[in-house]
Simulated scan of single mutants.
Amino acid sequence: MADKLRTLQQLESLQAKYVGTGHADTTRHEWTNTIVRDSYASYIGHPALLSYMSLGMGEPKEVVRGQFIEKMVRGVGNPPVKEED
């Protein structure tokens, strides 16, 4: 019983420390949005990866960075409409 409680406490502390790990109440839309935003933040934060992507897209690096920032802010779109019961 103590092991299970310790495991749950460790999980809760990790979820509090790293917001992107989600929790039981995280919706699919929130989780997907977090993944997309983290990905674009990583692309922007690693200059070599940004250069590689800009070369493949045929655009200047600053233009691609601007596009990625816009996509990061936008996320995956509006949340799905919830049905009222």
Rank of each mutant, 00 (worst) to 15 (best):
G45Y: 07
E83T: 13
H29E: 08
S51L: 10
A41T: 04
G20H: 10
M57H: 12
G56D: 10
Q9A: 11
I35D: 04
P79H: 02
V76I: 15
E62G: 01
G66Q: 11
H23T: 03
L14W: 02
G22M: 03
A24N: 04
T27H: 08
R37D: 02
I35Y: 11
D85E: 14
G56E: 12
G58A: 08
P79Q: 01
L50A: 03
S54G: 03
L14G: 00
K82R: 14
M1P: 07
M72F: 05
F68E: 04
Y43Q: 08
N78D: 15
E62T: 09
M1G: 14
P80A: 04
G56R: 13
R65A: 15
D25H: 07
I69C: 01
S39A: 13
G75K: 08
D25M: 02
P60E: 11
V19R: 11
T21C: 01
G58F: 10
E70S: 13
S51T: 13
D3L: 09
E70N: 09
Y40R: 06
R28K: 07
T34Y: 09
V64T: 11
V81L: 13
K82P: 01
V73M: 09
E83N: 10
L8S: 09
H29F: 11
K4F: 13
L5N: 07
K61N: 05
A41K: 09
L8I: 03
T34M: 09
A41H: 05
S51F: 08
Q67S: 06
L8N: 06
G20C: 02
D38E: 12
V64K: 05
G58C: 07
Y40V: 03
Q10E: 07
V36E: 11
I35V: 15
P47C: 04
W31H: 15
M1D: 11
G45T: 04
G22K: 04
L50C: 05
V19F: 07
E83D: 11
G75S: 06
E70R: 13
K61V: 15
S39R: 13
L49D: 15
T26V: 07
F68M: 15
H23F: 08
G22Y: 08
F68R: 05
V64E: 04
G77L: 08
G45F: 06
G22T: 03
Y43W: 15
S51Q: 14
T27M: 06
V76D: 12
N33K: 07
K71W: 13
L49M: 15
H46M: 10
G20L: 01
S13L: 02
G66L: 06
D38T: 04
Y40Q: 00
D38V: 00
H23C: 06
M1C: 05
M57E: 15
G77S: 06
R74W: 12
V64W: 03
Y40K: 00
L55S: 15
R65H: 09
G45N: 10
G77T: 10
D25C: 00
R28C: 01
G56V: 03
A24L: 09
A2V: 07
S39N: 08
G66A: 12
G56M: 11
S13W: 01
I35R: 11
E83M: 12
K71Q: 14
R65C: 05
A41L: 07
H29G: 01
R6I: 02
S51D: 15
R74I: 05
T27D: 08
A48F: 06
